[in-house]
Simulated scan of single mutants.
Amino acid sequence: MIGLWDTTGNEVVKALAAERRSAGGVASGMALTLIVVVDEKRVREAEAAATIAAAAHPCRLLVVVRSEIERDRNRLDAEIVVGGRLGPCEAVVMRTYGRLALHAESVVMPLLVPDVPVVTWWHGEPPEEIATDFLGVVADRRITDTAQARDPIAALRQRAHDYAPGDTDLAWTRITPWRTLVAGAFDTTEARVSEARLVAPRQDPTAALMCGWLSSRLGISPRWEHTDEFPRMREVQLSCTNGDQLILTREDSVATFRRTGQDDRQLPLVRRPLGDELAEELRRLDADQVYAEALGAISGVTGLEQRPATRVHVWKDPATAERAEAGVTAHTATSQR
Rank of each mutant, 00 (worst) to 15 (best):
A54R: 04
S67L: 09
Y97T: 10
V12A: 09
G29W: 04
G300S: 09
E19V: 01
A48E: 15
P114W: 07
Q237W: 09
T320Y: 07
A17G: 11
L304E: 12
L4E: 04
I153E: 02
A279G: 00
E280H: 00
G327E: 09
D228S: 15
G300V: 15
L248T: 09
E70N: 08
S194P: 04
R202C: 02
L32V: 08
A292H: 00
V328E: 15
K41C: 03
G24L: 11
V138T: 07
C211F: 01
E11S: 13
L246H: 10
V119L: 12
D263W: 04
D140C: 00
Y97I: 05
V107P: 06
Q306K: 15
R73I: 10
I298M: 15
D264W: 02
A171F: 02
D162I: 07
R250P: 09
V82N: 04
S215N: 03
V290R: 15
V65H: 07
G29A: 08
L32P: 01
P205W: 00
R71N: 13
E47F: 08
L16K: 02
R179E: 05
A255S: 11
R21Q: 09
T188V: 14
G300W: 11
L304P: 13
L238I: 13
E322S: 08
L274F: 11
S67N: 13
R95M: 06
R95L: 00
V81C: 10
A185F: 07
A292K: 04
R44F: 03
E11A: 15
T310I: 02
G84S: 02
V63E: 01
V113C: 09
G243D: 06
V37G: 05
D39I: 03
E19L: 03
G300Q: 06
A15T: 08
H103A: 13
E281F: 01
V290W: 05
V38G: 06
G25F: 11
W224H: 10
G219W: 08
T320C: 08
A324H: 06
A321P: 01
A23N: 04
L86W: 07
H123P: 04
L214F: 05
L4I: 04
T176Q: 12
R174F: 00
N242M: 07
E79A: 12
L32F: 01
R71W: 08
R271L: 12
T146H: 01
V36G: 11
G87K: 00
L181N: 05
R234S: 14
G136A: 12
E225F: 00
S22P: 02
M1V: 01
L34W: 07
Q237C: 14
C59E: 02
G296W: 11
R71C: 06
L86I: 05
R60C: 01
V137Y: 03
P165Y: 10
P201L: 05
D187S: 11
Q158V: 04
G296L: 12
E90A: 03
G212K: 06
G275A: 04
V93Y: 01
T8Y: 07
W315P: 14
A104Y: 00
A294L: 10
A287W: 03
A207R: 10
Y291S: 05
A46I: 10
R20Q: 08
E90D: 13
G219C: 06
L112D: 09
N10T: 14
L100Q: 03
T120K: 12
I130L: 15
L100W: 01
Q245A: 14
P58L: 05
L62H: 00
D264V: 05
L156K: 05
V93I: 15
L102I: 08
S253V: 13
R311V: 07
H103T: 14
